[in-house]
Structure formats: C-alpha cells, structure tokens
Design a protein around this nucleic acid. Sequence first.
DNA 1: TATATCATGTAATCGGTTACATGATTAA
DNA 2: TTAATCATGTAACCGATTACATGATATA
Lengths: 207, 207
Amino acid sequence: MERKVATERQEAFPITYGVLGLLAFWGPLSGYDLKRLFDHVLAPMWSAAHSQIYNELRRMQTLGWVTMERHEQESRPDRKVYQLTQAGQEALAAWQEQPPGVLQLRDELLLKVLFGSFASPDALVKNLQAGITEHEERLLHYRQQLQHLPVRGMQHQPSGRPNPYATEDTEEDAYFSLIGRFAIEFERMYLKWLRETLEYVEQNARS
Amino acid sequence: MERKVATERQEAFPITYGVLGLLAFWGPLSGYDLKRLFDHVLAPMWSAAHSQIYNELRRMQTLGWVTMERHEQESRPDRKVYQLTQAGQEALAAWQEQPPGVLQLRDELLLKVLFGSFASPDALVKNLQAGITEHEERLLHYRQQLQHLPVRGMQHQPSGRPNPYATEDTEEDAYFSLIGRFAIEFERMYLKWLRETLEYVEQNARS
DNA sequence: TATATCATGTAATCGGTTACATGATTAA
DNA sequence: TTAATCATGTAACCGATTACATGATATA
C-alpha cells in the first residue's frame, strides 16, 4: 500500500569525477580551465557544457570535495580557483572501486545510414562526406595531442600525503597515452567504415 | 533591451526519427514492438527507455506523423498499433536532407582508465576484465545478428506510393548490414584496446 | 513459490543543453 | 568595425531515466 518515496539523491556522476580527476591531476583550476581541459582531455569519453561544470563545482563545494579561492582581477570577473580536498581525493579513490556504467554511443549519422533507403543518394553522400571530413580532423587532432602530451602542472596534495598508487610521473601520464591511442584507433576505424560505406552508396547511386 | 523569448520548441529529435524509420521499415507496430526493435536494431547508435518511446508515439500522433489503432486483447492491455502517415514519411525524407548532429560517446570505463593513477591496480584490472567480458558478448551478439538479418514485415505504404529511393528489398537491407559491420568493427577495436590496456596495467602492477 | 516475460502506460525527477547576461581585450 | 576570446555565471527548459503501477501467463 505504502509508496516508496524520496530515494536518496545521488551525489556524484561521471561528470563529477571528471572534474575531480582533472583537479587531482592538474591542481587548482578555475571553471574556465576545467572546461578547456574537458574539451581536450575528456573529449574521447565525455562532454560537458561550461554551465554544467560551474554547477558541479558548486555542488562539490557543498559536498566538501573542493575548496574555492577567489583571485581578484582587473577588468575581468574574478577567477574562482578550486582545489581538491582530502575528502575529494577519497571520493575519487572510492569511485575507482565501483563498476563503471555502460557505454553509450549516440550518432545521428549512423541512424541516417541505417535508414538510408529513405534518403536520396545525394543527401546520403553529402552527409557521409561531411562525416569523413569531421573525423579526419579529429584523427589529426588526437595524433597531435599524443605527441604533445599535456605537461602536468603542480599537483595538489591536500594532506601532504602523495597518491599511494603513483610511482613515477611518467607512469601516470601513460594512462593519458592509452586513452589517446583509443581515440586514434576509434577514429581510424570510423573513417575506414565511412569510406567503404561512401563507396558502396556511390556505386549504388550510379546504377 | 528586449529579451528574446519562447524559441519555438523543436518537434523532432534523433529518437523521433528512430521510431519513424522503424515504422516505415517494419510497418504498423506497437510501442512494445518498437522498444524491442530499438534494443536490437538501433543499439549501436541510440538507446531509449520504453517510457520515452511511448511518449514519442503520443507526440508524433499530435504531429500527424502516425495514426493509432487499438487492438483489443483478453487478459492483457490493448495493443496500440501505430502506423506511419504520409506526413510522417515526408518528415523522414526531409530529415535525411539535414546534416546530422555530432557523435557523442559516453564511457565511464574510459574515464576510470584515464584517471587510473588514482585507482588501485586491483580495481582497474577488475573493471577492465568486466569490460572485456561485456564487449565480447556484444561482439558475439552483433555477429549473430548479421547472419540472421531481421526479415522485413509488410511495409506500410500510406499513399500507395512506393518509397522513391528503394529499388529492391535486398538493397534496403544492405544498410542494415553496413551498420552491423560498423558495430562489429567497433567492438573488435574496443576489445583489442581493452586487452592491450589490461596487459599494460597487469605488468605495471607486478613491478 | 518466485521470478521473468508480455504489455502498457503515468509521474517524478534529473542530467544536460540552450539561452541570457556582462564587459574588456585582441585579432581579422 | 566586427567578430572572437577571456571569464564567469544564472535561468529555463528539455531529453532521458527511474520509479510506480497493473495483471495475466509461462518458466525455473
């Protein structure tokens, strides 16, 4: 009879840990910095609007996972610089013990190809060509990024206790290389498929 | 001074055209049928909860893109069977002329690997192994699906006018094969990366 | 006996996006 | 002169998810 109600609100999501991880790795950062890092470093697996990042930072502050320090500036809004706390570091470590959520791919181009029988060959070809251009640019971007791996700034150590799992700086950066390789392999695979599909569609249009 | 307001609400989204395409291809279907088709056919590029599909169907009805027919059943809720209209078919064709939205990948496992330096080797290894199992299953599923391509039911022809772009049945199914191949290539690439990454992490843990 | 499936929906909420807002500096 | 960038946020909305709800039949 009774209705279950008010399931406790979850306090953190992948995007939260994205911010947390960036703060742990690159030390104190502003929302603006984080947005740029998100676009560059997390691009292969998660995206976020800047408004969402500012939101998360506020939420994380109330959770006690970060602290904020206001840096005054002339002729520009103050920089609010956020810094990981001990509790934040612990949350990050605890998250790593949990099984990850399922992968999600959302791709309207694939949807259009799937229902390609309802498109004019012209439209399909145009969309496939645009896709090729876009993914070529992505591939280039990721290749350049792998060669110029972002150098680690001062790492924040809230308690003076070092990250217990990290042995060397080079080892930590290796995870970024692994992700970079994933992104490159993904784009290569996607491009190959796009080119084969385009060839098929063009052949089909000519007949 | 004036504030722009009330930007006209968009009437359709990728998921809308997913439903539309399935209806165009497999003829009259219920929300339940559509959910199952979504999970099987659209799995590689879009996912949807059943509640969302029921919602879309209602919306599409008010747009005049589908019509609903109630099929009574004993001891079970009535089947509401939806059918594409002429306007719906036109909307599907018009959509194909528009450039697609950008691809989005959301993958918490990749995020955990990226910040692997804050994880115990044990946790990372466990998550990677679970990922391998999951993607192996997906690969198997897609491979089986490619061999048993879903047979097309009666196609709905609202105006008696056939799809102007379709030449043969086999040609239309070819697009499904193309998507199937994409899904397989994606899973193969992902698995290869997962195995290499696991090897690296294990090697790193032993030292 | 208990769970899963068939089959359909509603209600509430939430994660994420878009639009609004400001204002200086720098590049085309 | 126009647009882009730096830098920060708020407000509104919306697409999507989760939970609630029902009830028969089939399977373990």
